[in-house]
Structure formats: C-alpha cells, structure tokens
Simulated scan of single mutants.
Amino acid sequence: MISNLAAGVRAFTSNAFYVDGDRRVLVDAGANFDVASRVADEGGLDALVLTHTHRDHVGNVPAVVDAFDVDVWGFDTDQDGVDHAIADEETVRLGDHEYVAYHTPGHKDDHLCFHSPDAGVLFAGDLVFQGGSFGRTDLEEGDRPLLVESIERMVDVLDDDLGAMHTGHGPSVTDRPYQHVEAALESACADGRV
C-alpha cells in the first residue's frame, strides 16, 4: 500500500510517500511538517529513498533519521544526508515490489525515478506531473534539453500498463498515467527551445 503522508499539509513541501510491505520505505521526506509522527502512525520505517535533494524533498530527513535510525538512499552520496548511492538502473525494494531506478536529470542532477513493472507503479519525483506538466528547469542544475531527454527515456521505458504515477507535487495519477508522461514530453518540447 502506498500513501502520501504530506496529504493535507499546508506548507512548502513535496509529497512524501509511505510504501508499506516487506520493506517499509519513505520515498522523499518532504519539509516543514512533522512527517516522523505520521510515519510512526503507519508503523515505522526501514529506509528513506530520495528522488532528489531539493530542500522541499529533504527538509525532514534529519527528523526521520533521528526518529527511526534509518539509512538514506539517493543518487549522489556527495549530497548532505545521503548515506548510500543508487546507481542508474539499479533495482531497489520498496514495500513488496522491486523497482528499477532511472537517473533522470534535468530538474536536478541527482534526480531519480523508480518504476516497478510488476506493481505498475512509477515514482516520478519532479520529472513529470499530472496533466502533462514537468519539472522546473530555472533552478540551479536545471537543464531543459536534459530534462526532455529524461522524459523521453521514461516514455520509452513505460507503456500503457502503467497503473499509477506518484509525483513529487500534486495528486497521484491513476487514470491513464502513461498519457500524462507523453503529454509532459510534448509540453516540454513545445516552446521550441529544445
């Protein structure tokens, strides 16, 4: 089961997805709210996995580590708080399923997406969002052509069997999520700067 522990929070934060199962994992910690108590209400935690290290996704990392004594996994161990690196196309266990990690820079250099074909689930971070929106490229490390390449990669990896897309902001997408990824690619290419 996957639940967004940031649901209903009125603060600057990313979503924070609790993935229950054999390996209880929090995908992104969010910021500016007490996610540790929400994790405790769910029954505890085995690991914290990051899509990327923008402040709104990692602000609560110290509180989660302090509360549950868990390791933090992400793409780049040179980033503060990341204990273990996840390589491109490495398999990681989230809940009861294996997910393939895809390095998808463009929004931030250390950005990862996680896809489980068996579960039919994508954790998209800030790469793409509901309705064909896509991650900002006007921040440090932002790169529009690189973001387009990353979205193209995910369009190639995914297909219509995708059942759910959990994004870094906004609602999760369960109605034809693959079409939202395709729309994001179209939108990212539309302004002619790519």
Rank of each mutant, 00 (worst) to 15 (best):
V49Y: 02
G21F: 00
E141F: 07
D138C: 03
A119S: 08
V64Y: 01
L45H: 07
F75T: 15
L162Y: 06
G74L: 03
D88R: 08
K108F: 08
R55M: 12
L112Y: 04
L122I: 03
V181K: 09
N60A: 01
D156L: 06
A6R: 02
R176H: 13
S116M: 05
G95Y: 01
P105Q: 08
Y102V: 02
H52W: 03
P171E: 14
E152C: 11
G106W: 00
G192I: 06
L147W: 01
L162A: 08
A183V: 09
V173M: 07
T104V: 15
G44S: 02
W73H: 13
F75Q: 14
D160C: 08
F68V: 02
L147P: 00
A67T: 09
V35D: 01
D66S: 12
L94H: 10
N15T: 02
G125A: 06
H107G: 10
V121M: 04
G44N: 12
N15D: 07
H111M: 13
I86Q: 11
A101Y: 02
P117W: 13
G59C: 00
A188K: 07
D71A: 14
S3P: 12
R38H: 01
A7E: 13
I2F: 05
L50F: 02
H84M: 14
F123A: 08
F17S: 09
A67N: 10
G95H: 01
G135W: 00
R38T: 07
F75M: 14
Y18S: 01
G43P: 06
H84Q: 13
N15H: 05
